[in-house]
Design a binder for these strands. Sequence first.
DNA 1: TTGTAAGCGTTATCAA
DNA 2: TTGATAACGCTTACAA
Lengths: 341, 341
Amino acid sequence: MKTKKVTFADIAKYTGFSKTTISRYFNDPDSLTLENQQKIADALDALDYKENKVGRILASGRTEFIGLIIPNLYMHYYSEMLNQILATYETYGYKFLVFAGNEKADVERKYIEELMAYNIEGMIVLSPTIPSDELASYNVPVVGIEREDRYISSVNTDNYMGGVQAASLLRKSDCDILIHVNGNIPDTSPASGRIKGFVDVCEEYNVPYELILTHLGNTFEKNRNKIEEIVALLEKKYPDKKKGIFMPNDTHANVLLNYLFQKYGKLPETYQIIGFDNSPISREAVIPTSTVGQQISLIANEAMKILSDQMEERKKRRPAPLKEPVHKIIPPILIRRETTA
Amino acid sequence: MKTKKVTFADIAKYTGFSKTTISRYFNDPDSLTLENQQKIADALDALDYKENKVGRILASGRTEFIGLIIPNLYMHYYSEMLNQILATYETYGYKFLVFAGNEKADVERKYIEELMAYNIEGMIVLSPTIPSDELASYNVPVVGIEREDRYISSVNTDNYMGGVQAASLLRKSDCDILIHVNGNIPDTSPASGRIKGFVDVCEEYNVPYELILTHLGNTFEKNRNKIEEIVALLEKKYPDKKKGIFMPNDTHANVLLNYLFQKYGKLPETYQIIGFDNSPISREAVIPTSTVGQQISLIANEAMKILSDQMEERKKRRPAPLKEPVHKIIPPILIRRETTA
DNA sequence: TTGTAAGCGTTATCAA
DNA sequence: TTGATAACGCTTACAA
């Protein structure tokens, strides 16, 4: 522990070369003779050299750091996305500085300031809190995922198609009335497309439908109560009709399913349920639940590809600054399981 | 974007002070006159200075980085722990470089090498893959959580007490036979204490018991099949007995519960179930499931406290190297819900 | 209370 | 193919 770290200077002294040559051994080995490469390699071994990237960063400006801003990790969707993003390390080699802001804008801002102080090369933002024009103003490549993205590049699921898929499946399951439960989503959020897709299908085929746009709450207990209310409402309004319900995500679909199961000991014939995301809970539920699946691995990889392109561009002599943000849309995949016919 | 970044040199020139004084403004402002503090503050504003920590790291050696090695984020336990660890940023200010190694030792090693190249100040390791003596050899403070910890500091749940709590609850629920399902856990893993606690209670009170120690598989489908087998076995062996089953975690408890619910439309009187962790799934299950709860937030905070102490110690002039690793044990909290009497 | 000057460990530029 | 020298942005003795 007391032994000072070995530096290029030490290796230079040991081998008789200059520091420059040692640096070249790492960055452009072919510019050295094979013989000298070997000499240096031996010296590294003998001295037990460990690289120090801080010096490199200072001299070159390349940190290979990406900042990652996530709302939270309670929702399985986010942890799965994080998992997939972290996994790109093996392809791209970028390291991730991860932060969960829990929707507090000022905390997120403070953290982003810190990230900038470490010279991160790019940012991936899942959190909806900070508007995209502000994110863009940091002058670092940014990719947003499933959030407002007017002034930044982004990768999103084709939410409109998701709404269409869900409504179509419920319609074909011979439902008398289609219901879509969702939050009060702003028009700027990609998720709002889901509502539109759902409505368009219902209107095209003249299927009766109802939108229940209300915040379901942030805890299980609140979700549960809200969903009880909704079921009570629906059973009063449409007592003998076959109800097809499109829930905003698999977690909420599961709460609904479990509630019905407890009430009736099974999923009654008069209910069909479809969720969103294809989270593990949808497979592991008491009845495997149909869902509109997001291709999380694909989304993560596309986000890294876009970000990586933009980061590479900046390293060039005369970087051509991006004129327009890039927006990539990933189709959802309908997963039919046992809660729809 | 073309504008070069503002440095201490620029501020020094602008204000007429030296770089040293500027540095002092940030690190020890009280050593300047109030008047001069104000002058510099104004200059920072006027020039729109953004701090650059890379220079600071190079000069001082303090990165404020902690490396975090996680097995995966599929398991809710890990994402919840990650969430709590990230949240300590607001208390301690350390930034986290996160890596999910998916149990591949060589990939994990490669990543740790990289972390060391960035001069991380400490490491938190949840992953069981790399033995603690190897982790200790990196000469950086390390805290392990729920993993083998002979040569490193650690924070663990009191697994023995967890086993005792589970067995006691099942016993008091008038079960005729107690069953504990778990993997083939090495003795060095803290989780092995659970088995011991369970067995000790059964023997003390002369309650018949059975251990089913077998790997349940890594996918839902495999879990499900294995658990079907186990149920078949138990119903053959103990047809009319009241069976109290202690599952290795809440996910598996939920698979069991759902299987029984599908088979019988309810949880039969002859079954009692208790899980481990207190993951969200235990509350959100078709029947809220009893569980031995891990105090994840507390564990995360204790881990950071131990790590932070050791990191601070190293910054001192003559650091007193830690003689013995510190091991902190956190009691579990028994959560009684509806799957036990 | 403030300044001078020497680092920290690399990479970049120019010259040989 | 190699080397000398100057950055990179900040901290830290030591001196004033």
